[in-house]
């Protein structure tokens, strides 16, 4: 579903945020991307989502090159940044309708999907209010609904559990499972290693822009925990 080959990103000023990263995410897979602050996780996710320009490497989503066939790649993708800022001058329903228009979701289908996810996240009643009046958690839920109604083939999320209450986090995991069962994939970054260990089929650990470990979660962890593995890798000479 997602192929990243030799991706590198250097910011103006010379900082090399990501260095020769290659990884694949298969259909039906939940893939966790782990690293300390400033390791290059967000840069990678933003490049995959087509939000950030890059010149080195090739990224393809469902066979569409992110750089040369970006519209087709974006059409099958839903991206949520770590702190999703939304249009505060729109009401929740206006925002969802706007997103549905941009992603060309048909009228009946959008209504069913908004009802499904809105009710699940208990946000339907608030959809008539301006987003500016929402709490952080409500904004996070609205952003998640806007991503889920697209029925993406690849769901990219940066720190998705920050700001979510436990029941919303539980729901989110259910919807991920639903998406993956339908052949989609989830690629997300997190600092919550327990969640990554429980949810992810595979994980990748990145340090100072370089991939230092990748594999099936159970094999990578072995008898230890993901936290121990991560701390060990952070402490040793990798990167």
């Amino acid at each position: 579903m997602l192929h990243i080959e030799h991706f590198s990103k250097t910011y103006p000023g010379g900082k090399r945020a990501v260095d020769d990263l290659s990884l694949h995410v298969a259909p039906g897979e939940i893939f966790g991307f782990i690293g300390h602050n400033g390791a290059g996780k967000t840069t990678t996710l933003r490049a995959v989502a087509g939000v950030m320009d890059f010149t080195e490497g090739v990224i393809t989503i469902d066979g569409h090159n992110v750089r040369t066939d970006s519209l087709a790649a974006k059409k099958v993708t839903a991206f949520l940044p770590d702190n999703p800022d939304l249009y505060e001058f729109l009401t929740g329903i206006q925002f969802l309708n706007f997103i549905a228009d941009l992603y060309e979701i048909s009228g009946d289908s959008r209504q069913n999907l908004i009802a499904k996810y809105g009710d699940a996240f208990q946000l339907t009643g608030n959809l008539g209010s301006p987003i500016g009046s929402y709490s952080h958690g409500m904004k996070q839920k609205l952003a998640l609904i806007s991503a889920l109604i697209r029925q993406p083939k690849l769901l990219i999320l940066d720190e998705p559990f920050v700001g979510l209450d436990p029941s919303a986090a539980h729901l989110l995991k259910q919807f991920w499972a639903e998406l993956c069962a339908a052949g989609s994939a989830v690629f997300f970054s997190t600092h919550v290693l327990e969640v990554a260990e429980k949810l992810c089929h595979r994980v990748a650990i990145i340090k100072q822009g370089k991939l230092i470990r990748m594999g099936v979660t159970s094999e990578l962890v072995g008898d230890s925990t993901l936290e121990d593995v991560f701390l060990e890798l952070e402490g040793d000479g990798h990167g």
Partner: peptide
């Protein structure tokens, strides 16, 4: 902000991308 929690989902109008961007 004044908020309301009694919104009922009704029939939604749809438009093309250009229309959505203009409305925004």
């Amino acid at each position: 902000h004044r908020t309301r929690s009694d919104y009922k989902l009704g029939r939604l109008s749809s438009s093309n991308q250009q229309g959505a961007l203009l409305r925004k």
